[in-house]
Design a protein around this nucleic acid. Structure first.
Lengths: 186, 186
DNA sequence: CCGTAGTTTCAAATAGTTTTGAAAATCCAG
DNA sequence: CTGGATTTTCAAAACTATTTGAAACTACGG
């Protein structure tokens, strides 16, 4: 039944890879990277082999420019590394295979890009509002309530930041440890 | 010195609120909501009062349609609720003031929208590839390595999902508890 | 019922992001 | 050096997401 298959297993494996790439691509937004970046990462991860720019282009049907920029961004995030192959002038790219290390890098990068700036802004705003009661012809209680709400949120964000830094800080085990501790709670 | 200020403290408070709204708006991507949604939420949270659609429109300079849709989305996420004011035909909206409850709702929503579908896809793919070794003219080892990588990632995502569900599951304390346990680790 | 205040919807416009492709820059073997 | 191979850059195009605004709808007091 169905279409004759000439090289069935190569096709089957590739098909499974493609589905994985598609699924992982959807997670792009969750990781905060573009769909293509996520797909390239998925491809490199699932094949487990270093691939060069042309192979990535061919497999995912993206332009050279896009492949180049996305690969560079993945290297910046630290979840893909360049490797040189002796006797080949092309650059090859390989995905981090340790999923814990990978998660750590993603979390760290998001802290750096998204939490830190917000935290800095919130601190600034808090400092500005601190000596605000002075001018006030706004009821003191109103200003105080504002400050309380701001501080509450600041504490939350700060806690996220501190936990993040703690369990993701450069060396190994932290994250896995945190996960297993949590898994054992009640 | 500088510009004369006629109603200084109202301006000062409003200015602080605006800065907060701007900062929180930037976190939109982190929460997975649009900038306007994040800003409306920030406004409702920081003022601490129920506001109606027109007040939101005026304060944030957005269209009626946008305000309406964004408010509805916030209600869907569960971090803003409608309130009726006696003797007023307008609908008012109020932000969840408990930041832990708020975080729980955001996390739950993101699990539901982003993790669950990916998890489902990964399971499907795994099932398809499980009986793949059969066809193989691809080296058995290659297929096995593929399956191993897929399973590793599946385990990771599944763990995230389970931890998420555990500590975010409808009732109270879970998340706060998890945070304090983590804060005491090493 | 009717008229009006209030809310929702949605097609079109705008803004923002990603992708392309070709030109420019870089790299390296000979 | 030189010339071809490879990679990077970036303006323009394609695509996606958000926002607008006005029309349709709903609810309610009179």
């Amino acid at each position: 039944m169905g279409t004759p298959r000439l090289i069935p297993s190569r096709n089957e494996l590739a098909k499974a890879q493609d589905e994985f790439i598609g699924a992982w691509g959807q997670m792009g937004s969750l990781w905060g990277i573009s769909r293509t970046m996520a797909e390239i990462h998925a491809l490199l991860y699932i094949t487990g082999q270093p691939l060069n720019t042309d192979e990535v282009m061919d497999r995912l049907q993206v332009s050279r420019g896009n492949a180049s920029m996305s690969l560079r961004a993945l290297v910046d995030w630290g979840i893909v590394t360049k490797v040189h192959k002796r006797g080949d002038r092309k650059e090859y790219f390989e995905a981090e295979q340790d999923v814990w290390a990978m998660s750590r890098k993603v979390i760290r990068e998001r802290l750096r890009r998204e939490i830190h700036p917000v935290l800095a802004s919130l601190f600034e705003i808090r400092d500005e509002t601190a000596n605000l009661a002075a001018f006030a012809d706004t009821p003191r209680a109103t200003v105080e309530a504002h400050n309380r709400r701001l501080d509450t949120l600041l504490d939350l964000v700060q806690m996220v930041d501190r936990l993040g830094e703690r369990f993701v800080g450069s060396e190994g085990k932290g994250l896995k440890l945190a996960a297993s501790v949590l898994a054992k709670i009640p």
